[in-house]
Every structure is written in structure tokens, then in C-alpha cells.
Design a protein around this nucleic acid. Structure first.
Lengths: 394, 394
DNA sequence: ATTACAATGTCAAGAGTTTTAACAAACATG
DNA sequence: CATGTTTGTTAAAACTCTTGACATTGTAAT
């Protein structure tokens, strides 16, 4: 983004922007990159946040895994590690583990926590961002109202941000993936459960108590199977990773000619179903296709209510690609209203399994930038930085 | 709101606010009202937009009616009129009618269009606010892309705003009704059809193409009755005014002992059902209760996705009150996730059938204020006015 | 090559806002 | 009636942004 563009966006003159920008250049918060060529006139000098200005940490705590990454201010991941970890062990154990892995990851490069400008975290539950804690999480026993952010900021001595994981998936895909620059997007995380993260008017929308986007518990069929949440026929009970695994286990024991038949039932997860489907197993494909249809029904509802411009399918199960998106698209076409359905693009996550980590990185970079700009003695530097924070649509 | 409060909200000092405020007081855009008493210290002087500064027009174009009102800057309605009008007649005829009624209404008080500072309009279709037109409306044949705002501004010579009617219902209830000061609310308009208007982060949310909030076309049961939109089992086909009337007509002919039995089927509308139910007719109550349950199912989905703090039931059918809200509350309690459901209040519209007109008034006042503030030669007067626009939460 | 053109970026003086720091005003309480 | 507390006001000082010029850098035409 050039000085002139910034001036227009902020409602200032080029001269004023020049003064602010040069100040920020001097302190290396932003840098000039190559100048684009334009039809006529002097080419603008493109400005961006200095990728080398610092490093941030990104942590994705899932139901059964823990991913940690170190990235620069351009959200380029330098190092990454994933281990399995049961979130039910509670905050003390899980966060201690995260602390340990992060330090280890940094040490490999001769770094320490103090080299990080900020750390972004995603968790699979309703988050009150301002308070830095989760409230009444369905699948995180023991985490309710635990002061996650406060305790980590104290331990690490740097700013920490906490968000819902699906929100971060949406943010990641919006900033660097399939939803770049769009105004309203939904990121559907299809993992063991199903959740949605929303960005409305280019901002994360978490709802009143952080519980927005619970698409997994839309009622699809009131006579359907029992869900963890206590209700019957939730989407999650039809199409989540657990539900897929359960169907596959039943299939394996049914005596049908399927690639899954040979496996011991306990070892069958959604991953095995995806693998079998990829190899052409019709029964496995059938399971995924049906899941896709159910997800599509729910997404049709979401589209009717939100009218987004893009819906991005992410999460572990989404790695199967078209086997899920094709039935989803069809269900949406059949169920959603024309006016909304025609304007929406439904696509797989561009950042794959990294959407959430990248989203966490973006959040961390944003707070780091804010902290840096606030320390400087200028009024409108923060406002200018906000326009540079993530390459917003031009 | 006092000068000191304004200063805090805007991040300025009291001194700066004083200068701006006194300028605005001089030009009578705002006025001082009585000073509240506080525990200790000098009582603050409450400021508000001068209610007498001017008048605005509000127009609510429904599927089968046209309501027009003249109100002051405090959204107090001075005059009001409602006639029946079929929106299918198209924009030329309907807007000419609106023009005629408005002029007539003004003339009764010795006024004319030039006495109005702005006019707000609501229509029952997806609106692109910036363009001032509707796009692909399901129930407004002939209105697609007709330049509603442009043609009216030319005709009337004052600023005109165009919004979806349910959006305005939400805005009206948020500003002066059951959702005052809340951050995220949904207004459910139960009329011939069913639609939702959303205010998220204290702003109208219309979606990417203005089609957000189409709750009426959520699929409740894929084997349900055919809907106007072409799909099966939409909420609207179960619980809209049309659907209620259809059920009542069937009931009347069924031979059951009901108050509706005597009436000729063609004359039975939702209004007659409500009337019979109020008189204790169990069959009529049953119809309404079932409609409430279906609406509740859809609202449960909306709550799971949006996590609002208040859901307001409005529109013609909602006038029956508890006969609709009780089953709605119960369905929501059964279907929505705890975390979201516990934090939400479900209530009837406080402004009754006027929600939309008041919302239109609020929009009109806002643009009028903006126009007034922009003409003045000051940088931050517009910003200050925004904080006064509608009594936002303190 | 040279010239014209069109847009970006820069500079110094001047205009306009906001802060600072002190003070006056208004009300409750003892 | 003095005291405490918070609001609102005032003048000078500090700061920010705009104004209106000019230099810069590329493309396209002569």
C-alpha cells in the first residue's frame, strides 16, 4: 500500500502521511518494497510492515492435538511442531506442555521467549477475548473461566491473545488464504466436531459471549442420533469426525466389501475413511458424501442468515477436498435462497491445516504492532498501522 | 450524555469537547437538558440532539400495506397513517402513492416536503443501502434494481435512506425499544412472511448483498410443504402469516368446533386466528403454538450462529404476545446450546407495530444530523454527533 | 533523444485543533 | 458554612494537518 493510498483511506493529505510514514520507516516498523508499475505517472512506493521486525508465537490447542509455530511479521512460519495432547487434562497440564514445547522449539534456533513480540493462541471453545478466558466450553472440562491469558502473560512477559480456533481459521484465510480481502466470510472447521468462525465487515465476530458460530449444533433432524450436547440430531452427530468414525466402524463390521473391513474397529478414524475413499472405496465415499450433504444443509442455513461472500471449508476432515465440497455445494444450491446462494463462493481452505496457526500469527502480529505503535509519541501512527496490519482489499 | 462522558468516549479532553459543544449549542443542533444528580460533585449537564431541530419522514412499505409518519429528531411520531397497498403493483405506482400520502399528511399541518430534513424508507426485500435499491427481491416483482433512492431524492430534494424493513425493526427496537443499547440483537419480523433484522456490534448487518437475515427460508423439514421460494419445508411455509391463514382455512372447513368455523374461508387471515385464540379457541391457539414452536426452532439456529443478547419478536402476527413467545422460548431452550441460550433474552417488540417506522425515523435523523454536521466547518463535530446520534449505552 | 504528461512523494509556512494547567461553578455532606 | 468532589471554562502553548508549491520518476509520443 502506497502513501497516496493510505492518505485516501485515512482521509489525510499525502503530505501528512509522508511525515508519519517517514517516522515509522526510521524506526524500522515498516519498510519500502519494490515499486509497482502503473499506466502513467510516478510509480508508487509500496509500504508494508517490516517482516523482520520481530517474531511471534502461534499456538493451536485442539481437542486432541497441540500445534505450535514461530513466525515472522509477514506470517511466514519459521518452525512448526505438532504433538497429540488431550485437552481434557485441563489448563495447568496443557499450558505447561505448551510452554515446554515452545521453549524447546525456540531453543533449537538459539532463541528464547523474550525474542517473541507476542503470542497468539486458539482454543476449541467460546472465548471472551477481552477477558482472555473461555466460558462454559462444551469440550474443555476444567478450563471454564481459567485465566488463560493472564497466567501466560505473567509467565512469558509478552502480550498474549486468546481466540476461538474457528475464528482464527477465518482470520488466517481472510488475511492470507481463500478469503483474502473479502468483507464477510465464514470458515467451517470440520474436525472431530464442526464449528464456524465468522468475519463480518472484516472483523472477527464472536457474538455476545464468544459463542457465535456454533454451527455444529444446528438441529438437522430432531429424530437423529444423540449428540454430546444433549440434544438430538445435531449436525455434529451426523457429520463430525467422531460421527464419521462411528459410521465407518459400523460399516467395517457389517461384512460389506470395503477397504475398511480389514481394520480393527477401534483404529478407524475419519482419517482412515478419507484414505479409503481416496483409494476408491465406494462405501467410504458414501459416508463422506452424506456428511457433506448434512454440512451443506447447515451451511445453507448459515448463508441464508449471514449472506457471506465466501464460505471456506477447513479442519482435518476437509483435507479430502472435493469429496466433501461437491455434496456441500449441491446441498447449498438446493436449500439456500437464490439471492444469497448466487453470490457465495464455497471453497476448501487454502492454508490447509495451517489456517488456525496463521490466524493466531495474524492476531499476535496485530497486538505486537499496536504495542509498538502506542509506545511511539504520535497520535495517528496507530491508525495508520491499522491500515497496514493485514493487506486489506485495495 | 454529558461533556465529560463525550470526552471519555472520544478520547479527547473536556476542554476540547467544550469548545465543540458550545459551537453546536450556538447553532441549535444540540441542546442542554436537565442536569442529573450524582452522588457527589457538580452535576453533569446532559446534552442531546435538539428534538425540535427539524422533522423527518418515515415510510414503511410492506407486502400489503403502506405506513407513513412524520416525526421529530427524538423519534416522536407527530402524525401517522396506514393504508393497504399491494407492493406487486411495482415501484412507479407504489412510490407515487407514497409521495401523494406523504404530501397530504404534511399539508394537514400546513407543512410541505421542504420542511423535512430527511426521509427513511423500509422495504421487504434485500437492500443494497449504498446503492439505494433492492436486488433480486423474492416478493417485490418489478422492483429489482429500480433506483428507489435516486428517484425519490430527485423528486423530494432531501436525503433519502433505504433499508430492509426487518433491519429497521431491529434498529428501532435497539434505539428506543426492547433492545436499547445492546451489542447484538435480532429482530424477528413475523408477518405474512418471516424475516430477521440483525444489529451486530451496534450496527445494522445486511450481509454482502443485503440478503442477510433470511430466517424465513431456513429448512425446517425437507419433506414439509412447498414454499414460494421453490424449496420445501421452509419456516415461512409453516409459520408465516400466509401459512397460518391456510391452516385456519382448512380448520374452518374441517367441521371441528371452533370460532373460525362460521367465517367464510377467504376472509380468514392470521388476524382472525389471533382474535379467535385470544377469545379462548383451543384450535386457533394450537395453530399459533405450533407456529411458535417452528419459529423457535429457527431462532435456536440463529442463536447458535449469532449468539445475540436479545431476540425481539415483532411484526403483525407477534401482536398476539405470549401465545407466540411461550412456545418460542421453550423450543429455544430445548434446541439451542446452553452457552448461548442462557445469555439471551427473548421478548416481544416494545414498539409494537411501529418498530419499523421508528427505525426508519432513526435512519432519517442520522443522515439529517450528518448532513448538518458536515456543512459546518469543523473536523470533529461529525464524530461528536455520532456519539449523540442515538442514546447509546453508557 | 527529447519532450510532454501524469501521478507520487517532499518541503516550509501557516492554519486549525487539542492539550495543558489553572480556575470557577454547582451540588451533597457534615 | 466550610469541605470535598466532580463538572465545565479559559488562555496560552504545543501539536498536527493542510496548503500550495516543487522535485521525482516512470511511460508515451514526437
Amino acid at each position: 500500500m502506497s502513501r497516496t493510498e493510505l492518505a485516501e483511506q485515512m482521509g489525510l493529505t499525502r503530505a501528512a502521511v509522508s511525515l508519519i510514514v517517514n517516522d515509522l520507516l526510521e524506526s524500522k516498523v515498516i519498510v519500502e518494497t519494490e515499486s509497482r508499475s502503473i499506466p502513467s505517472g510516478r510509480p508508487p512506493i509500496v509500504l508494508e510492515i517490516n517482516p523482520e521486525r520481530g517474531l511471534v508465537g502461534a499456538i493451536d490447542i485442539g481437542a486432541t492435538h497441540l500445534s505450535i509455530a514461530v513466525a515472522d511479521f509477514a506470517a511466514r512460519i519459521h518452525q512448526e511442531i505438532e504433538i497429540s495432547l488431550d485437552i481434557k487434562q485441563g489448563p495447568e497440564i496443557c499450558l505447561a506442555k505448551a510452554d515446554q514445547i515452545l521453549r524447546q522449539l525456540l531453543q533449537e534456533q538459539g532463541l528464547s521467549i523474550s525474542d517473541l513480540s507476542a503470542i497468539g493462541i486458539g482454543v476449541p471453545g467460546p472465548v471472551i477475548t477481552e477477558a482472555g478466558m473461555v466460558v462454559s466450553p462444551p469440550i474443555m472440562p476444567g478450563w471454564d473461566r481459567y485465566p488463560i491469558r493472564a497466567s501466560l502473560e505473567k509467565k512469558w512477559g509478552c502480550p498474549v491473545t486468546l481466540n476461538n480456533d474457528a475464528e482464527l481459521g477465518a482470520l488466517g484465510e481472510w488475511a492470507y488464504g481463500a478469503g483474502r480481502g473479502e468483507k464477510n466470510i465464514a470458515y467451517i472447521k470440520v474436525g472431530s466436531g464442526v464449528g464456524a468462525g465468522l468475519m463480518l465487515n472484516k472483523q472477527i465476530y464472536g457474538g455476545t459471549t464468544g459463542a457465535a458460530g456454533e454451527i455444529g449444533h444446528l438441529t438437522i433432524d430432531e429424530n437423529g442420533p444423540l449428540c454430546n450436547c444433549g440434544n438430538h440430531g445435531c449436525l455434529e452427530a451426523f457429520a463430525g469426525g467422531h460421527a464419521i468414525a462411528r459410521q465407518a466402524q459400523a460399516l467395517a463390521q457389517s461384512g460389506k466389501r470395503t477397504l475398511l473391513a480389514g481394520l480393527p474397529p477401534e483404529t478407524i478414524t475419519a482419517r482412515e475413511v478419507a484414505e479409503a475413499a481416496r483409494r476408491g472405496d465406494l462405501y467410504a465415499q458414501e459416508i463422506l458424501s452424506r456428511a457433506g450433504t448434512y454440512i451443506g444443509i447447515a451451511i445453507a442455513g448459515l448463508i441464508n442468515l449471514f449472506n457471506p461472500s465466501v464460505v471456506i471449508i477447513g479442519g482435518g476432515v476437509a483435507q479430502v477436498g472435493d469429496m466433501l465440497t461437491t455434496p456441500i455445494r449441491q446441498a447449498v444450491r438446493e436449500r439456500a435462497m437464490r439471492a444469497s446462494e448466487q453470490g457465495v463462493r464455497i471453497t476448501t481452505a487454502m492454508l490447509g491445516r495451517r489456517s488456525i496457526l496463521i490466524g493466531a500469527t495474524v492476531q499476535a502480529v496485530n497486538v505486537a504492532i499496536h504495542a509498538a505503535a502506542e509506545n511511539r509519541n504520535s497520535t495517528s501512527q496507530p491508525a495508520l498501522m491499522e491500515n497496514l496490519e493485514v493487506k486489506s482489499s485495495s
